[in-house]
């Protein structure tokens, strides 16, 4: 089990940040992701594997300013 934005969801072994974002249907191309206190840069989404029991925050960054 992992938590994303304080909600429990299933942990999938070997899942990367990129795959998790796809699974959760994040439609914005860019997001800020923090796993267990550490901010994951965009370029590491495809190689960062999510550990079990991870606490994850995902904040989409939306155009406009």
């Amino acid at each position: 089990m992992i938590t994303v934005n304080n909600k429990d969801i299933e942990w999938i072994e070997g899942e990367t940040v990129e795959k998790l974002l796809k699974r959760l249907k994040y439609v914005f191309p860019v997001v800020v992701v923090k796993i267990n206190g550490e901010i994951i840069p965009m370029k590491k989404y495809s190689t960062t594997i999510i550990p079990d029991n991870a606490e994850i925050d995902i904040i989409p960054i939306i155009s406009g300013g």
Partner: peptide
């Protein structure tokens, strides 16, 4: 205080790093 989402994210990441 940028506009484009990708530029915003890249900027945030560079400052944090």
């Amino acid at each position: 205080a940028l506009d484009d989402a990708e530029t915003k994210t890249r900027f945030i990441e560079e400052i944090l790093e």
